Simulated scan of single mutants.
Amino acid sequence: MDIFAAGSRPTLRARSEWFTGTVWQDPVIEAPAPARVRVLRVSFEPGARTAWHRHPLGQTLHVTEGCGLIGLRDQPPRVIRPGDTVWIPPEEQHWHGAGPETGMVHIAIQEAGEDGATATWLDHVTDAEYGADPTG
């Protein structure tokens, strides 16, 4: 058993290749093999978001603070709020992040594929895609 004391691992700024705006990541767990689970607490400042991406084994998001958005290709984004849990099936292209005026924090849970990767990163979400009317 391992216990990771609060504050013992640094908060990291998310990579600009994969995110737009300011995003901070706190590790929760990257379990050793044979487990595949990886969990992060992700904090998005207003307007910040992921790039388009997909996960080989899917992803679960659980919103803990703020108000955010999640989008799928060719669909307007949907609003997500504290207490909402989102399941994204394997290989579904999507993005997620904060609202334009509000920050958002979620727990991101995913598993690594056979090659050890948890995501395939694609193009950045355009301002038009991000700003599409979430009510459809």
Score class of each variant (00 low, 15 high):
D2L: 12
I3R: 10
A6R: 14
G7D: 14
P10H: 14
P10W: 13
A14I: 03
S16P: 09
E17W: 06
E17D: 08
W18E: 08
F19K: 01
T20S: 13
G21N: 08
G21F: 06
G21W: 05
D26L: 12
D26V: 08
D26I: 08
P27C: 06
V28R: 12
V28M: 15
I29P: 05
I29W: 14
A31P: 07
L40V: 12
V42K: 00
V42E: 03
S43V: 05
F44N: 04
F44K: 01
E45F: 02
E45P: 00
P46K: 11
P46N: 13
A48E: 06
A48S: 11
A48C: 07
R49P: 03
R49I: 02
T50G: 06
T50C: 09
A51W: 00
W52S: 03
H53P: 10
R54P: 07
H55C: 13
L57H: 13
G58S: 09
G58R: 06
L61K: 00
L61T: 02
L61M: 07
L61G: 01
H62D: 07
H62G: 03
T64W: 02
G66E: 14
G66M: 11
G68I: 06
G68M: 06
L69P: 02
I70R: 00
I70D: 04
L72I: 03
L72H: 04
P77T: 03
R78I: 04
V79H: 13
I80P: 01
I80W: 06
R81T: 08
G83L: 08
T85M: 12
T85H: 08
I88K: 03
E92W: 02
Q93E: 15
Q93C: 11
Q93L: 09
W95K: 01
G97I: 01
G99P: 00
M104K: 04
V105H: 10
H106L: 10
I107K: 14
A108L: 05
A108Y: 03
I109L: 15
Q110K: 11
E111K: 09
E111C: 14
A112Q: 10
E114L: 10
D115V: 10
D115G: 05
G116R: 04
A117R: 06
T120D: 09
T120C: 08
W121Y: 12
W121T: 04
W121V: 07
H124I: 01
V125G: 00
T126R: 05
A128G: 04
E129R: 06
G131R: 09
G131T: 11
A132I: 05
D133N: 10
T135I: 08
G136H: 09
